[in-house]
Design a protein around this nucleic acid. Structure first.
Length: 803
RNA sequence: GCGGACAUGGCGGAAUUGGCAGACGCGCCAGACUUAGAAUCUGGUUCUUUGGAGUGGGGGUUCAAGUCCCCCUGUCCGCACCA
């Protein structure tokens, strides 16, 4: 063993050994642990140190579990369909499959630099026909189960990507991918009935060991609300308008109604007098972008000339049309109570509509309302409900309505069905066939996959048609049902399709009969620990839960939540910003590995800060862990031949180290694990110095504790200590609680809460003994009358005096 | 607008959950080694008028508050006319 820590040599050596003989044994009868990284999109830009963070974290957890006696599934793959490869194809003419393959080769090389215990035999690639066969198969099952349907409706359209977007991809009216402002376009598209699962997606969140933040984002996105549907007959017609409200208690205060511009009854009820104005308004609303419809808070609207009858009190309420009412939420129509709703109040003020107060704080009517009163209170101007608490009326009014038959209690969700088709090339073809005679027929399962054909031009069109539509010989096919001429569906699936079930495929990735065998799923699934960024809180994570529940319902899997535990790692920033090629603030892991070694970079990725928070990259920071590993190396080198019986001090330092590292690792406070290594190694070194040697077990313990974090140096040390077998064959060390106890403890002595002295007392000293020692130590500092004496064993002693 | 998280030295951050604030590291300063530098090692490093003060600001509870409660300020994040 040379005295210098030669990371290059050591890492090269062990990488080769592990390649031949992986440290993670397979096909054991040990309990399983499935630790998964969110698989990356193989970008041509490669990895930066920020990407390493989550991968190191999951690898540390995997290796730790391995030493605890689990068989580990820790796979990696590629979420390779998507726009960048396609845009690159448009620019250069390179087929996306070629550029994707190149990107994967490069990124795989970089991923290998992390030295994670990935089992590459389990690699998956969403663009591999053997993989997307099953992505298509799942879609066919959804179609057969009535969860996939076609619908024409105004959809989010990204003019830059020339593609429709799901609601989840268009939050804030902006394209999730490119940041362009999204417009509305009326298109016929394939939808998945995720709303069918709204209640289960909401309720089952409580089963999950996920960050509360993510659970809240999902539950807010699903957006369940409790309310009532009420029918307002349209005066002088046989029609009625159904409204949804969460405030049935305010029904007596409804002074007008508003319909969304898309509401189907508008044309039937608008009087000739207002028709021209109405047509103009509806046209304008339909062309308004999502963004302006959201941000133009100034209320606009047109009167229909018609009146609805309040079923509770028979009041005539004018019916208006305004784009502040959304067509696809509730019933697309609302009753308006300006006295108790901010938006209705604003609308009433602008169009001079009556305001009737029906709830007040003290049961008395206010002189004049200057703003809507939205708090609970006492019912007024509400007939038989007067004097009741509004919170009680919320339940009583719907009961009354149900009795009289003009309304009912109901719930609503903000969640919309998933717009599932995309008008782009580089995605899974939707496996459906349009036949004039038989309608829409799924491609028979034995004919899957429907292979994505080559095209001349990858360019998306403005018409909402996919580039696949231009390939006649592919589009024209025969109907599997009647054998007659038919046409293929030319839309492709969104990128989320492949990632919604890939965690299942890892369990049995070579299976060509099923997406994964029952046995393999039983052995591995669901995922025990899922590590990735927060950006998928409502996208990928919601879709994957939906897919899993569906597959559970049709008997493919026997669990209904895919990810038992979720961990979101924070970003690594440079100059306060997310690393990107454009900003030129990218730190390359390749360079760090070259200059400091993989082990140092792994350690620094964890040391940089609390793993769940964003952390700023410090160019000098890695020096600290590099020096630490050098110190460990020198320590072992110096003492490996000075083996003695351990002293009490050495024993204590060792057990304290095991205790601290284990506890912190369990809590995933990995930054403090690394600082703990530094702190407790120093203690061990000092104890060894005092004793003039150290026992072998202490050195071995250090190697084992270190191996999930810095696997190469740990293996090397383990070997230097005379072992032929890998350190990863060892079991995680245990600490002895008795050995942690100190004989004497240091207690701070306070007067009135201020530290005035420090004393060493025997660990089992009682209060009186400690107080006596404390008073002695204080001496003349203690004056006045003692009012109270407090002793917290092992911590502090506080004497309260009055002068 | 609504909801959530956070605020600690020059910097990243720690604090056994109410018990000695600043662990560990970076940076900086001094010293050792060296012809010199780099590297390495050792020591120091919250401020300070040496009495104290101090965890964004103000108030409160407590023997004791970074930690609990109330008010305010700032930063970040999520949702955004969802009736």
């Amino acid at each position: 063993m040379s005295t210098k820590y030669n990371y290059k040599e050591i890492e090269k050596k062990w990488r080769a050994i592990w390649e031949k003989d992986p440290v993670n044994p397979t096909n054991t009868d040990k309990p399983k642990y499935y630790c998964l990284d969110m698989f990356p999109y193989p970008s041509g830009n490669g990895l930066h140190v920020g990407h390493w963070r989550g991968y190191v974290l999951s690898d540390v957890v995997s290796r730790y579990k391995l030493l605890q006696g689990y068989e580990i599934l820790h796979p990696m793959g590629w979420d390779a369909f998507g726009l960048p490869a396609e845009n690159y194809a448009i620019k250069t003419g390179t087929h996306p499959s070629v550029s994707t393959e190149n990107s994967i080769r490069n990124i795989k090389r970089q991923v290998n630099e992390i030295a994670a215990i990935y089992d590459w035999d389990r690699e998956v690639n969403t663009t591999d026909p053997a993989y997307y066969k099953w992505t298509q198969w799942i879609f066919v099952q959804m179609f057969k189960n009535g969860l996939a349907y076609e619908k024409e409706m105004p959809l989010n359209w990204c003019p830059n990507c020339k593609c429709v977007l799901a609601n989840e991809e268009a939050t804030n009216g902006v394209c999730d991918r490119c940041g362009s402002q999204v417009t509305k376009k009326n298109l016929r598209q394939w939808m998945l009935k995720i709303t069918h699962y709204a209640e289960r997606l909401l309720n089952d969140l409580q089963k999950l060991d996920w960050p509360e933040k993510v659970k809240k984002m999902q539950s807010d996105w699903i957006g369940k609300s409790y309310g009532a549907e009420i029918d307002f007959p349209v005066d002088g017609t046989d029609k009625a308008i159904k409204v949804y409200t969460t405030r049935p208690d305010t029904l007596y205060g409804a002074t007008f109604m508003v319909l969304a511009p898309e509401h189907e009854l508008i044309k039937d009820i608008t009087t000739p007098e207002y028709k021209e104005q109405m047509d103009k308004y509806i046209y304008e609303a339909s062309t308004k972008s999502n963004v302006s419809r959201m941000t133009d808070k100034e209320k606009t609207g047109v009167f229909t000339g018609a009146y609805g009858i309040n079923p509770l009190n028979g009041a005539k309420t004018p019916i208006w049309v305004s784009d502040y009412v959304l067509a696809d939420y509730g019933t697309g129509a609302i009753m308006c109570v300006p006295a108790h709703d901010d938006r209705d109040f604003e609308f009433a003020k602008k169009f001079d509509l009556p305001i009737i107060q029906v709830i007040s704080k003290d049961g008395k009517e206010s002189e004049e309302l200057t703003e809507a009163y939205t708090e609970p209170g006492i019912m007024i101007n509400s007939g038989e409900f007067n004097g009741m608490k509004s919170e009680d009326a919320k339940a009583k009014v719907p009961d009354y309505m149900e009795e009289k038959g003009f309304g009912k209690k109901t719930v609503n969700y903000k969640l919309r069905d998933w717009v599932f088709s995309r008008q782009r090339y580089w995605g899974e073809p939707i496996p459906l066939i349009h036949c004039e005679k038989c309608g829409i027929v799924p491609v028979p399962e034995e004919e899957l996959p429907v292979i994505l054909p080559n095209v001349e031009s990858y360019k998306p069109t403005d018409t909402g048609e996919s580039p696949l539509a231009a390939i006649d010989e592919w589009v024209n096919t025969t109907c599997p049902c009647c054998g007659g001429p038919a046409k293929r569906e030319t839309n492709t699936m969104p990128q989320w399709a492949g990632s919604s079930w890939y965690f299942l495929r890892y369990c049995d990735n070579h299976n060509d009969k099923e997406l994964a065998s029952k046995e393999a799923l039983k052995k591995w699934a669901p995922v025990d620990m899922y590590v990735g960024g927060i950006e998928h809180a409502v996208l990928h994570l919601l879709y994957a839960r939906f897919y899993t529940k569906f597959l559970y319902d049709i008997g493919v899997v026997d669990f209904d939540e895919p990810f038992t535990r979720l961990f979101n790692q924070g970003m690594i920033t440079k100059d306060g910003a997310k690393m990107s090629k454009n900003k030129g603030n990218v730190v390359s892991p390749d360079e760090m590995v070259e200059n400091y070694g993989c082990d140092s970079l792994r350690m620094y990725e964890l040391f940089i800060g609390p793993p769940e928070l964003d952390s700023e990259w410090d160019d000098n920071g890695i020096d600290g862990v590099y020096r630490y590993l050098n110190k460990v190396w020198k320590f072992v080198d110096e003492y490996k031949d000075k083996i003695i019986e351990p002293t009490k001090e050495i024993e204590q330092a060792k057990h304290k180290m095991i205790y601290e590292i284990t506890t912190r690792l369990e809590a995933l406070t990995l930054n403090t694990v690394i600082s703990g290594f530094m702190e407790f190694t120093n203690k061990l070194v000092a104890a060894a110095k005092n004793a003039g040697g150290i026992d072998k077990d202490s050195l071995e313990t250090l190697a084992i504790l270190l191996c999930p974090f810095a696997p190469h140096i740990a293996e090397e040390i383990w070997q230097v200590l005379g072992h032929d077998e890998s350190v990863f064959k060892q079991t995680w060390p245990k600490y002895d609680k008795e050995k942690l106890k100190e004989d004497t403890i240091n207690v701070a002595v306070q007067i009135n809460g201020k530290v005035k002295a420090n004393i060493d007392v025997s660990a089992d000293a009682d209060k009186d003994t400690v107080l006596a020692a404390a008073k002695e130590a204080l001496g003349s500092k203690l004056s006045g009358t003692i009012v109270k004496e407090i002793y917290v064993p092992g911590r502090i002693c506080n004497i309260v005096v009055r002068p």
